[in-house]
Simulated scan of single mutants.
Amino acid sequence: MDNLTHSLVGALLGQAGLKRRTGLAMPALIFGANLPDIDAGCVVYGIESLAMRRGLTHGPIAWVLLPLLLAGFLWWFDRWQATRRTRPEDRLPVHFGWLYLLAFVGCLSHPALDWMNSYGIRLLEPFSSRWFYGDTLFIIDVWIWAAMIFAFVFSRRIEKRGTGNWRRPALLGLVAVLGYINFNMVVTATARAQTPQAEAIASPVPLAFWARDMIIEVDGPIYRGKAKQRWTLGQGLSDDYTLLTDQPACIHPLQLPMFAHDDAEVRAFLFWSRAPYVEREDRDGRMVDVLKDARFDGRFEVEVDVPAEAEECYFE
């Protein structure tokens, strides 16, 4: 999920009452909820970063070590402010144990949310490189934003006025988001059950949480290609599907390592990709094969240099 969603989860956990456990509790929760995304720096490696993201920093070892580092920094920061006489007088006493526990809770919320979308996460890295997919939420969900922002703002206003239970709106906001997530799980499970293809991927649709784009495979004369078929709650699966490529290449993604075994970008892409397909495109008068993933409509792609004499039709 996006970092605003992760931050709001940490903030609501704090407003639900956890921020009263120790000084600097809110930074521990909010920063902790974003800690696993320290691997975002690997984007400097371009396409190869697809194989680096959502792995080691999202796995069990990171769940333990990253909160420990954050708690240590916050504890040191409190002591540093005290020695400089800049520590706020209204800050609660800082307890390292609570800092670590809150950072740990925030950190755990991150992979739990990342698992919800179709991008995937390697939950067991470094013990296993298997990808896990929840297919439940789009990576940016404005309905979750709206619910959590409203709950947080309402909670803070009540707290400042001192006129009621300021924890309740935050708790209700978290319960509402959990209910929304569970509803979306049911939507995804129903869409899968009503799609004939067992290998179909249920891809959440932006804004339309009641719909799923079912990624399926369709056969052509000499190729197998990817297509999307819309499923909607209450209406079921549409009769038509949309091909993701106008000019499918004769090369199947499983053949690519034979031709591009020394290409680090292709290896990384295939390791990350869940629904790879190859499209033949005319680029500046030159026909090239482009490796894409059906989940993202070509937003990630790698040009594959396949020698003309090596091309074979995999499905002939």
Rank of each mutant, 00 (worst) to 15 (best):
I201M: 11
A202Y: 05
P204F: 10
P204R: 08
P206K: 11
L207A: 11
L207I: 15
F209T: 15
F209Q: 12
A211H: 14
R212F: 01
D213A: 04
M214L: 04
M214Y: 01
I216R: 07
E217M: 09
V218P: 09
D219W: 04
D219E: 15
G220K: 04
G220S: 06
I222D: 15
Y223H: 14
K226S: 11
K226D: 00
K228A: 01
K228V: 09
Q229I: 00
W231S: 00
W231R: 01
L233Y: 13
G234E: 09
G234S: 10
Q235N: 15
G236H: 13
L237N: 05
L237W: 06
D239I: 11
D239G: 15
D239K: 15
D240I: 07
D240A: 14
Y241K: 00
Y241H: 11
T242S: 07
T242F: 02
L243M: 10
L243R: 14
L243W: 02
L244M: 08
L244D: 00
D246A: 13
Q247R: 14
P248E: 03
P248C: 05
A249T: 13
A249K: 03
A249S: 15
I251V: 15
H252D: 14
L254N: 13
Q255L: 03
Q255K: 04
L256M: 03
P257W: 08
P257F: 06
M258D: 08
F259G: 08
F259N: 10
A260P: 08
D262K: 12
D263W: 02
D263E: 03
A264D: 13
V266G: 06
V266L: 06
R267M: 08
A268K: 07
F269D: 04
L270N: 01
F271Q: 12
F271L: 06
S273H: 07
S273E: 08
S273P: 06
R274M: 05
A275I: 02
A275D: 05
A275E: 07
P276N: 03
Y277R: 00
Y277I: 00
V278W: 00
R280M: 12
R280A: 08
E281Y: 04
D282Q: 14
D282W: 10
D282R: 12
G285S: 07
G285D: 03
G285P: 07
G285K: 05
G285L: 05
R286P: 04
R286M: 10
M287L: 14
M287G: 06
M287Q: 15
M287W: 13
V288L: 10
D289C: 02
D289K: 05
D289I: 06
V290E: 04
L291K: 05
K292P: 04
K292A: 06
K292Y: 04
D293Y: 01
D293T: 05
A294W: 02
R295W: 01
R295M: 00
D297S: 11
G298Q: 00
G298L: 02
G298H: 06
F300A: 04
F300C: 05
E301T: 08
E301N: 12
E301C: 08
